[in-house]
């Protein structure tokens, strides 16, 4: 058992776009220790989203090995990947991706429902919302919340199953600078308080400043 949370060796990813093979990743290796805060940067098309998808078990690499918390992520069924995402990974998206007809509370409860948590589900969801400073907004629907508040709901949702890692894809990309800063502070606060590992995918240097380590990608390869 290694001490690394994430251990990826020589990851490659090839898509087929019609007849053409697209090499999104051309051999990326990566190690992330528990509690680290890192950012993956690079221009668009550099493969950073693909890398994040593989780290988050949303996608499988074409080649290479990937261990998440010592477990080899290889040859798993869709449902097994879903369970790993459910228990180990939290996602924060640029566009929040909240369920529009549901309240903040039920949005945050969603991962716990898929995990089969019934006891204390509501309580845990409320606590998660309080942790992101939305204790007074639990009955609101996304369209009644500001962008920053919506992203905070998304953060509450990502952390409610106590994941080993939170992956944030341009978390401040759709926010004004003030609420962007709030969101960053909340995420970094989680890392300080609970030691949650954070991986930011971004091309915003402002975010990269806050992280301990930056991985630069270009054309599917790590550079710099």
């Amino acid at each position: 058992m290694s001490e690394w949370l994430i251990e990826a060796e020589d990851l490659t990813k090839v898509y087929l776009m019609g007849e053409i093979e697209v090499h999104a990743l051309r051999g990326v290796s990566l190690r992330i220790a528990p509690g680290e805060v890192i950012s993956i940067m690079g221009p668009s098309g550099s493969g950073k989203s693909t890398l994040m998808n593989i780290i988050g078990c949303l996608d499988r690499p074409t080649n290479g090995t990937y261990h998440l918390k010592g477990q080899l992520i290889y040859d798993l069924s869709d449902d097994q990947l879903a369970e790993i995402r459910n228990r180990m990974v939290g996602f924060v998206f640029q566009t929040f991706n909240l369920l529009g007809r549901q309240t903040a509370l039920t949005n945050v409860e969603l991962p716990m429902r898929y995990a089969g948590v019934t006891n204390g589900r509501r309580k845990r969801a409320i606590e998660a919302l309080k942790a992101v400073g939305l204790g007074d907004r639990i009955r609101h629907r996304p369209n009644e919340l500001s962008g920053g508040e919506q992203q905070r709901v998304a953060i509450a949702r990502s952390l409610v199953n106590n994941p080993a890692i939170i992956l944030a894809d341009e978390p401040t990309g759709n926010l004004d600078s003030k609420s962007g800063e709030e969101v960053m502070n909340i995420l970094l606060g989680l890392n300080e308080k609970h030691g949650t590992t954070l991986v930011f995918v971004t091309h915003d240097p402002e975010i990269a400043v806050h992280t301990q380590r930056v991985i630069m990608l270009k054309d599917g390869r790590e550079v710099g």
Partner: peptide, 15 residues
């Protein structure tokens, strides 16, 4: 997109 999100947070096929 909603289906994608549900899957991202851990929904299995049967869910």
């Amino acid at each position: 997109r909603e289906i994608g999100l549900r899957k991202a947070v851990g929904a299995r096929k049967r869910d």
